[in-house]
């Protein structure tokens, strides 16, 4: 794990969030790279090396729920059904604070549900979380 640069795959149809995460990490954890996909479909292409900017072994996936073409739940359904993709660690990262969305996400075994409104000033809490995650968690091989 430590021999390769950790990457975070962010799947969100609004490109602001990839920038938000990059900006926050640039200061706090510049060794973590950010790869962006604009919806679930592109997310899968990125994970399977079929996109311009592949990211086959991300440290974590940050997943938005409400997206066109393939939304967050459809993405989870797809990767959990695929033996080569199912071990990916997914954090939901969404504006939705609806109970039913949260419950449904945990039914898919996500590692955490993060509301975009609660990431702290300059994404402080979120950056801390990602940083310590990268340095402490041992991921599947």
């Amino acid at each position: 794990m430590s021999d390769i640069e950790p990457k975070i795959l962010i799947i969100d149809d609004d490109d602001i969030y990839a920038e938000l995460v990059s900006r926050a990490l640039r200061k706090a954890a510049p060794h973590i790279q950010v790869v962006a996909a604009e919806d679930g479909q592109e997310g899968i292409e990125t994970l399977t090396g079929k996109s311009e900017q592949p990211c086959e072994r991300p440290l974590v996936i940050l997943l938005d729920l409400n997206m066109p073409r393939m939304n967050g739940f459809e993405f989870l359904e797809e990767i959990r059904a695929d033996p080569t993709l199912r071990k990916n660690v997914v954090f939901v990262f969404t504006t939705s604070e609806a109970d039913e969305d949260r419950e449904r996400a945990y039914d898919f075994g996500v590692a955490g549900y993060i509301a975009k409104s609660r990431v702290g000033p300059q994404m402080g809490n979120m950056t801390e979380l990602l940083k310590s995650y990268a340095s402490t968690v041992i991921l599947p091989s």
Binding site: D14, I16, Y17, L20, N66, T95, S96, E97, A98, K116, S117
Partner: peptide
């Protein structure tokens, strides 16, 4: 209100 109206406003706040 919880999804579609909130997300552009959240985006503006980030910008």
């Amino acid at each position: 209100a919880s999804h579609d109206l909130r997300s552009p406003i959240r985006g503006i706040s980030n910008l």
